[in-house]
Design a protein around this nucleic acid. Sequence first.
DNA 1: CGCCTTTGACCCGCGC
DNA 2: GCGCGGGTCAAAGGCG
Length: 311
Amino acid sequence: MAGAAGDRAEGVGGGGDWPPFAGDAFAEYSSSVFAELGGWSDGLGAGAGELPPLDLPAASASGPVPMARSDEIMPAASGEPAGAASSCSSGDGAAAAAENADKPQEAADAASMKPAAAAGKKGQKRARQQRFAFVTKSEVDHLEDGYRWRKYGQKAVKNSPFPRSYYRCTNSKCTVKKRVERSSEDPSVVITTYEGQHCHHQTSFQRGGMHFHGAATVALAEQMSFVSTQQLYNLPPLRRQQMNPASSESAVSSVPPSLQQLNGGDELRRSTSYSPTASAVQTPSSSLVPPDVSFDMGLLGDIVPPGVRNG
DNA sequence: CGCCTTTGACCCGCGC
DNA sequence: GCGCGGGTCAAAGGCG
C-alpha cells in the first residue's frame, strides 16, 4: 500500500505549495480554509475533527469573499515566537519552549513527545511550532504541498470514523510535521494541519511532481479545482475540555460565522478546495495566480507571503 | 536497493 | 490513581 498512498499524495497536487496563495492573490481564489491553530491536537481534535458542516459563508457560494488578508494573517504567523520560525534550526526544543509559553494544552501534546524529548523537557512541555490547519475539500487525503512527507503513524480519532494520519517531512533536518484527517462532519473535507516550518526548499519533486516555483505555481493553480469556498475556522487554543462535544461546538461556532476574528490577529486563511483529477479540473482562472509568486520558504513561507512575513 | 506505508505497542498528559 | 486519548516509535512488508 505504501506506494498507493504515497504516490497519490505526491501526485495529487502535482506537488507544490498547495495553499497557492500569496497575499492578495491568495485571497482571490482561495476557497478552502486554513487557520492557525492554537494547539496541535486541540485545533483539530476539537475543531477540525468536529468541524461543523462547512456552511460556507455567503461569500463562499458566490465567489470571492472578504477573507483574511495577508496582513491579517501574518500577525499570527509572524507573531509566533521566533523559535517557531524554523523547525530546522530551533527544532522542537526551541520552538517548544517558545510555544509553551502561551499554550497550556501543550501538555496534551506533550504526550506525544518522545521519551527522550519528554525527559529532556520535563518542565517544559513539548513544544509545538507554528501550526496551520487547512480545511480543504478534496478527494484525496494527503494533499500535495510541494514537500515530501513520510507517514509515520495513523490513528483512529475519537468522534470520527476517519483515521488521522501523521506525516513528517522527509528532510532529515526538517522537523515539520503534518497531520491529515477527514472531517467527520463532511467526509469530503480534508483537514491538514502543519506544524513547524520547512527550513529547506521544496526539494522534492523528483517523484513526478511538478515544481512549484514561481510560474510553476500557476500550474498548480490550474490543476486545482476551486470548488467552493468554505468558511474559515479560527480555532482558538482549545483546552481539553473544549474538546467535548459541547465545548468544541462552542469553540467552532465561534469562528466561522463572519471571520470576525480575522482582525483579531488570529490566523485564518483560506486556501482552496480542489480535486485531484487535474484533467477534470475546472481550471480556476490562472490569472488569479501571480506568475511570479514564489513559495520556496519554509512552511510558513508557503502560507505567508514573503513581504508580509517579514513584517 | 531504497523509500515509504502499515500497524501494533508504548509513552505521556489530562480529566475524572 | 486510573483510564482515555493522542502522538510517536520501530519492525515488517511492499512497491518502483
